[in-house]
Design a binder for these strands. Structure first.
Lengths: 146, 146
DNA sequence: GGGATTTACTTGATTAATGAAAGGACTTAT
DNA sequence: ATAAGTCCTTTCATTAATCAAGTAAATCCC
C-alpha cells in the first residue's frame, strides 16, 4: 500500500503537530503526543524528522515590539539608484538592527524592506542614510488587523 | 540603588533571554540559565515574568512554507472601492487560509495584505474574488534576502 | 512469493529538567 | 529601625526526555 509517508510527505499527524507547535512551540513531547494520539517518544521522532526535512526551520517567540520600545512598523519599497544593488544590500546589512525582512520583489520597486523603529527620529535618520543608496516609498503600519 | 528592574523595565539579562528564545524557543531553562549566568529556576521565573508582562506573546515555529506546498508569497496593496471597509474585511476573514497579515497602513492604499498561495491558479482565483470588494496592486516575493 | 530490510511505533530503564519550598542578600517603605 | 518585598540560590520531589530493545507492518529485491 502506498501512502503519503512512503515519499517523505506529510500526513495528517504531521500537520497537526505543526499546527500545535505553531501555537505553542514549548509544549512537551508527551503532551503533544497526547494530542495526536501517540507516545512522547514517537512524537519526538516525528518532530526530529520534520526538523531534518527542513519543514521546521526553527523555534522562536513572538515578542511584543511595542513593549520593547519599537513603536514604528514600516514597509519601505526600495528603488535602487544604480544598476548595482550591492551598495544598498551592504547598507541594509550594516543597519541590521532595524530590519525585519528584506524581500526581493516583482512589481513596483526592487525590494520591499520591512523595518521597526523606536521613534520617528530613528526612522528619519535611517531614511536619510538609505537615500544615499536608493529611492524609496514609505508605508507605515497603523494597525494589524486580526 | 535604583536600577531598571525597580520599575519593571527590562535589564540586559532579559534582553539576552529574549534574544536566545528568539533563536531557539525550545531551549531548556537550565541551558538558558547558563547563557545568562543564572540558575534554571531563576531563569524560569524571569521568563514567566516576561510572559505575564506581555513582552513574550507566544512560542512558535518557523515553517518552510515552500515545503508545505505554498510557493507564492505576495503583498497586496488594497484600495477599497467603497468608503465602508466592512465588505473587504469580512472577505479577508472568510479567506483566512491564505492570509498571513492584514495591516492597516498609511501611504498608498488602505491595507497591506500579506498572503501565501500554493499556485498561481489559487492566487488568480483569490484576486478575482478580492476584486469584488477592492482594487489592488500586487507585489510578489522573488526571494528573501538574509 | 518469501526472506531480509526498513519504518514507525511501543515499552521500560536511565538521565535530565522542572517546580515547590526554604532561606539569604539586598532594596524599599513606613 | 524594622517590616515587607524582590530576586536569587539550594535542596528535594516530581515529571519529562532520552536511550535501548523489542514488535508489527510495509517495502524491497531476487
Amino acid at each position: 500500500m502506498i501512502n503519503e509517508r512512503t515519499y517523505n510527505m506529510l500526513d495528517n499527524t504531521d500537520i497537526r503537530i505543526l499546527e500545535e507547535l505553531s501555537h505553542n512551540s514549548r509544549v512537551t513531547m508527551k503532551e503533544l503526543g497526547e494530542k495526536v494520539h501517540m507516545t512522547g517518544q514517537a512524537t519526538s521522532a516525528r518532530v526530529a524528522k520534520l526538523e531534518d526535512n527542513g519543514v521546521i526551520e526553527g523555534y522562536t517567540i513572538k515578542v511584543n515590539q511595542a513593549k520593547l520600545g519599537c513603536h514604528i512598523h514600516a514597509f519601505i519599497t526600495i528603488f535602487t539608484q544604480s544598476l548595482n544593488h550591492r551598495p544598498y544590500l551592504s547598507f541594509i546589512k550594516s543597519q541590521g538592527e532595524y530590519t525585519i525582512n528584506n524581500f526581493k520583489i516583482s512589481g513596483d520597486g526592487c525590494y520591499l524592506l520591512e523595518c521597526r523603529f523606536p521613534s520617528n527620529e530613528h526612522l528619519d535618520q535611517f531614511l536619510t542614510q538609505l537615500n544615499k543608496y536608493a529611492n524609496y516609498k514609505l508605508t507605515t503600519v497603523i494597525n494589524k488587523m486580526e
